[in-house]
Design a protein around this nucleic acid. Structure first.
Lengths: 137, 137
DNA sequence: TTCGCGCTTGACGCTTACGTAAACGTAAAG
DNA sequence: CTTTACGTTTACGTAAGCGTCAAGCGCGAA
């Protein structure tokens, strides 16, 4: 092994890329958009647990179909400092919004899954009709 | 009213746009990509129930974060003709794929909703701490 | 006939989310 | 010293998904 002693705490860009199956370009792009802020050791990027968690959240957001701008807002909610009352109220408002969106998506998924089951059933029926000896109508 | 007698069966582009809250441009764009194929009465587009259903499916697919190309494949599954055995097997395979994707998304949503609840709780706690008479630590 | 309304077809523009070189630094290994 | 591995920035390219004119057609009302 070539870095077994401190690697429990930090990662290189390539390590993160491998682990999450994204390209280096992608990770750097997220940094460009302010979604990640790794430490710099010289010119190289060093990622801490916080960064790793954020990358995970970003990718989950992507799978959910959110834009990077939206993801930025969501992810920033996670490690927001307590802040003042106005901030907190705003945050709660955002949470309500996101929840509504997500619940709409969940409904969409349920419906689509149901539809798929229907199509599948039709499909299997057609198949067995094809395979069993045909009788003309 | 100006077309109250046959409108139960067909719609104009504007009617569909209003009903689904999309622009005319969007609907025409979907046609361009082969996702919709309305009848033509002269030069005007006339949408039948089938088209309307497809538009609904397209928009649901979009909310789920699928690309138009993917949506095209999915939607075409719905009204695929029985077809030959190879086709049917392919279709069943696609269904398996989509189902896996959707179930991953559903898990993502569940996790995110759980996370949101956590953040919300923290938020409310901070708020009530701010509002109740402060005691210094 | 002329008006306006709704619809049509281009065609160019824009943003998002990266891909894809090009060209260079740095550090360990052979 | 040279190679190899791994990293860096800069910058142009591109596919998707429309927005936004521009210019024109058809049709019923005035």
């Amino acid at each position: 092994m070539h870095n077994s002693q401190v690697s429990a705490e930090t990662w290189s860009i390539a390590e993160l890329a491998t682990e999450y199956d994204v390209t280096l370009r992608t990770i750097r792009f997220y940094e460009d958009r302010g979604l990640l802020t790794p430490e710099r050791r010289g010119t190289a990027r060093v990622y801490h647990p916080r960064d790793k968690v954020r990358l995970g959240l970003i990718l989950r957001g992507k799978r959910l179909g959110f834009s990077l701008d939206e993801i930025a807002k969501i992810v920033d909610m996670y490690d927001a400092e307590p802040g003042e009352e106005g901030q907190l109220v705003y945050l709660l408002d955002q949470i309500t919004h996101r929840r509504a969106e997500l619940e709409q998506r969940r409904r969409d998924i349920e419906e689509t899954l149901a539809d798929l089951s229907e199509v599948e059933a039709r499909c299997r029926a057609d198949l067995s009709a094809l395979r069993s000896p045909l009788r003309k109508p």
